[in-house]
Design a protein around this nucleic acid. Structure first.
Lengths: 188, 188
DNA sequence: GCTCACATGTAATCCGTTACATGATTCT
DNA sequence: AGAATCATGTAACGGATTACATGTGAGC
């Protein structure tokens, strides 16, 4: 049985106490969305697979007339999860950004338009940072059972966006100053 | 005709002088790989689509007995490219990282293993930074026709990885010191 | 009474990667 | 002579998103 990072996301959320598929998706939206997004049509088949492999168990848990399932992690599931956490192979980070791609080709634009593009990128960084600090991190801090790392990962994201914001702000200043972007680095 | 960021990547590389599909892939590996990866089986059909839409033209350009195509951007292609560069809609950044996901769930590990995980993440950041500074940026600096932004985007990537490296180093120090990761931020 | 959140799924589609297939040229 | 690079594709597969489909419960 092959387990992907999405499998471990679902398994991990069950482990932290999310019982239904819906609850797992809700928890993921409030915490791991920025590092590993998922969707309901992915969660439900994944839960069925994990159940088939004996990593979680399912119980009927209707609320009134509304059908609902309650999942729990098994010992086998816990072992698989621990083994994943400890594995030394770090998969490659997947990154794709249309904004950065535009910047890559920005030599084709007049300076004014270059500036507008950089400004949009800086503003996006600001928006993302504010969303993480204002929405995601507070929610991550309220995750049950030892809630240290969820909030920490949120801070890593927020700090990274803050770094981008500063980086683009310096680039804007540089383009405004003399149009030269040939300095060795913009790193602080 | 619908154009995706991958379309504009191919179009942009043709615009910068890459003639064959193979040359486009080679150029992308040496420059945009980290922000928008692509593959040969994606490039060839994309070139055919762009040709069908009249954004590029194709000429036979055999080298000896070996078949080869030479692509050029058309006026229509140049207009589409410019329009894309200027569009104010910034698509969302796509980010997926198994390493960050592991960190999210790291409360399940004993402190020693937490430390090992963070160390692996810091070392990955170091490797990526070194690869960008040592390999990608020098190549990006040698891209023909005004080569300002390609190298700039490389520096953004390298600076970002350097930031992660410092962030994880501070986290390591903190875990080593007292195991507390409840500080407000690790941002410098 | 209406709207939003809760709850579960399937079907169709899209985008991208890996594997397959072939062959010429250049460098060692 | 053999390996690496140049060069072009097709086929199969996989993972993820969007659209479709249905219905209950809670709050305003």
């Amino acid at each position: 049985m092959k387990l992907t990072p999405s499998s471990y996301l679902v398994l991990g959320m069950v482990r932290l106490g999310a019982r239904s598929g819906y609850a797992i998706k809700k928890a993921a939206d409030a915490s791991t969305q920025a590092i590993w997004p998922t969707s309901l049509p992915q969660v439900y088949p994944e839960l069925a697979r994990l159940e088939g492999g004996g990593l979680v168990t399912r119980k009927d848990d209707p609320k009134g007339a509304r059908a609902r399932s309650a999942y729990r992690i098994t010992d086998k599931g816990e072992a698989a999860f621990q083994s994943w956490l400890r594995s030394t192979r770090v998969g490659p980070l997947q990154f794709r950004d249309e904004g950065s791609l535009r910047l890559f080709f920005a030599d084709a634009l007049p300076r004014e338009e270059q500036l507008a593009l950089v400004k949009r990128l800086r503003e996006r960084a600001l928006r993302e940072k504010n969303w993480l600090r204002g929405e995601l991190i507070p929610q991550a801090e309220s995750i049950p059972t030892d809630p240290r790392y969820p909030a920490l990962v949120g801070r890593l994201g927020a700090d990274s966006w803050a770094y981008w914001e500063r980086w683009f702000a310096r680039l804007e200043a540089q383009i405004n100053r003399d149009g030269s972007t040939n300095d060795k680095t913009l790193e602080s």
